[in-house]
Design a protein around this nucleic acid. Structure first.
Length: 571
RNA sequence: GCGCCCGUAGCUCAGCUGGAUAGAGUGUUUGACUACGAAUCAAAAGGUCGUGAGUUCGAAUCUCGCCGGGCGCGCCA
């Protein structure tokens, strides 16, 4: 039972004592839900608004608050105070400190809400023959972070990189390669060389439209398993994946599977036959579609006029395969909001196919990335590649380290953690639905609410703990009376709320909630640090303050880890 | 034209399932390193919560209209 539940139970008891036998009073659950955190800490740790009781009790809210106050009989847990229509509670600060700090250990954050249920996660999903750029960062980091958060809460996750490795574009690529490319060109130039070939193809196709047919023919050869076409295709794929792997390694992102679109090439017949069996497939303008007019949506295209499959067909095949293979209870598609309609259609079709797991399909959508106010464009060069961004962020971090911590060992590694932490923090600090307009100055800012800010607070904790260790002041029995001041209590409240935040972040698929909470803890601790001398005082007091510092370090480290940011011990 | 999303301080954003005086960061101005780490902290200034109505004891939050912006709307993915 946490402190909130306990307060709720005690309010219930006071209500029973003050107004025995009255109908229509809120149940325990409702009391707990009504409990709120006052806007100002001076008002209390929790507040219970009495307005809703006015009706059933036929009394004014302030009168009710007074009556409940009179019936309040648990001063050892919290003292109460009636202010207007509110009943405000102040925890016994010493006990609160002891309880909060006792709960924080290596397992803090772990829970078994998921009970081992499988969550399939589709994220990152990069395209073959394209370089990793800032437009891929949101899906990649959202997926990575949600994976860690869900695992922490007891879910089993399967991370899938649903590669964009299918479509006529790859026929065009091969066509371009055969005409103007060489093996050496790709081997040395990598993905950039492939992109250059693709751009050239489009340019030349404007003059020479027969190229388009040639491209389609090459794609047909890939589909039919022609050895030459397939060899080039898989080679391009390998080169792209190797290039992307460098970025994934820098970010620490991993996947359990790389089953992309091409993987489902031989699994499309089942989609068509099942849809036909279930009577969902109808002809429309020569194409085969699932009609969704009754659901207020445009039809979902399954087969083109020429009988070829489409994006939606492949996504249905993927969903069927994932259901069979992983027996998921939830499947998350971490894809930009551009595709809102596509997923609404897709989920509706799955629902119409009457698969019980269809209700577990979730589109975790997020905002679009632009660069200095304009849409990203590879062709016009209006783009920021991720490795350029990461390299510049790391360089900047290294420069700051050289200025501020010239004696730091392994500074390259720390610069890497800090620079990348700054970039990752930026994508996971706002609600995911927000569009991001990328600006270099903002991305390379390490002051204020940033990744380095939180990392710095963590490193500061580590530094203090090293000093406490050296001085031998860490071991004594903590006297929690030393943590009754406002600043320490602010820190403790935030630490106590971490679990709640974690659950909500998982519920809403919103890692930014963790990022922000961790930032608030760092802010509160920094303030505490300036107001109090941690390593000075009576042994019991020092032990308590050191214990608080330990807890902050642990929660910061864990919170940062959950959003994919490393926490160096020195920086 | 229709559908979905967004609109809070100069800028970037929080605001918990309707609750107390709307909060951070950044930028601007100013103060604090012979101090357990100044990538820090403190202070000032900065708001008709796009707009108009409605519901409610109470609305940034819920409903509707309007304005502004983004995205999408049959054979691309």
């Amino acid at each position: 039972m946490d402190s909130k539940e306990r307060i709720a139970a005690l309010i219930g008891r006071a209500m029973e004592a003050a107004y025995p036998g009255v109908e229509g009073l809120p149940a325990l659950r409702e009391i707990e839900a009504a409990l709120e955190i006052p806007p100002d800490n001076k008002l209390g740790d929790y507040a219970f608004p009495c307005f809703r009781l006015a009706k059933p009790l036929r009394k004014a809210p302030p009168v009710i608050a007074q009556a409940l106050l009179a019936a309040w009989d648990a001063p050892e847990t919290a003292t109460a105070e009636a202010v207007g229509g509110y009943l405000n509670f102040f925890f016994n600060r010493k006990n609160f400190a002891g309880e909060v700090l006792a709960a924080i250990g290596p397992d803090y954050g772990h829970a078994d809400i998921g009970r081992g249920e499988v969550v399939v996660m589709d994220y990152s999903s990069i395209n073959i023959a394209k370089r990793f750029h800032i437009g891929h960062l949101s899906t990649t980091m959202l997926g990575h972070s949600l994976k860690r958060i869900l695992e922490m809460l007891g879910y089993k996750t399967v991370g899938i990189n649903h590669l964009g490795d299918w479509g006529t574009q790859f026929g065009k690529m091969i066509c371009a390669y055969k005409r103007w490319g060489t093996r050496e060109m790709i081997e040395t130039g990598g993905v950039d060389a492939m992109t250059a070939l693709y751009v050239r193809f489009h340019k030349e196709a404007e003059e020479n439209p027969t190229l388009e047919d040639e491209g389609r023919a090459w794609f047909k050869r890939i589909e039919d398993g022609d050895p030459e076409a397939l060899e080039i295709f898989t080679w391009f794929k390998d080169v792209t994946l190797k290039d992307a792997q460098r970025v994934y390694d820098m970010l620490g992102v991993t996947f359990d599977a790389y089953t992309g679109e091409s993987f489902y090439n031989d699994k499309m017949d089942r989609v068509v036959s099942e849809l036909t069996e279930k009577g969902l497939l109808v002809e429309s303008d020569g194409a085969m579609v699932v009609d969704l007019e009754a659901d207020g949506m445009p039809p979902c295209l399954i087969l083109k006029r020429d009988g070829a499959t489409l994006y939606a067909t492949r996504d249905i095949a993927a969903a069927l395969y994932r259901a069979d293979t992983y027996h998921f209870s939830k499947a998350l598609y971490i894809v930009a909001y551009q595709q809102d309609l596509h997923f609404r259609q897709l989920f509706k079709v799955m629902e119409k196919m009457e698969y019980p797991w269809a209700k577990g399909l979730v589109h975790v959508s997020f905002g679009m990335v632009s660069f200095e106010g304009q849409a990203l464009s590879t062709r016009e060069g209006h783009i920021v590649y991720l490795d350029d961004l990461l390299i510049r962020a790391v360089e900047k971090a290294l420069k700051i380290i050289e200025e501020k911590s010239p004696d730091l060992p392994n500074r390259e590694e720390v610069a890497r953690q800090v620079g990348i932490g700054a970039v990752v923090y930026t994508v996971l600090s706002n609600n995911r639905i927000k569009d991001i307009d990328f600006r270099w100055d903002r991305a390379l800012n390490f002051d204020g609410e940033t990744g380095p800010y939180v990392q710095y607070a963590h490193a500061r904790c580590c530094s203090l703990l090293r000093k406490a260790e050296d001085a031998g002041t860490a071991g004594g029995t903590p006297d929690y009376a030393a943590l009754c001041d406002d600043e320490a209590q602010d820190v403790l409240r935030l630490l106590a709320r971490f679990l709640e935040v974690l659950r909500e972040a998982a519920d809403k698929y919103e890692p930014s909630m963790v990022t922000r909470h961790v930032t608030r803890i760092a802010q509160a601790y920094n303030k505490y640090y300036y107001e109090h001398r941690i390593l000075e005082g009576e042994p019991g007091e020092v032990a308590a303050k050191v214990r608080l510092t330990q807890a902050v370090r642990d929660v910061l480290r864990e919170g940062l880890w959950l959003v994919g940011i490393d926490a160096p011990e020195r920086m």
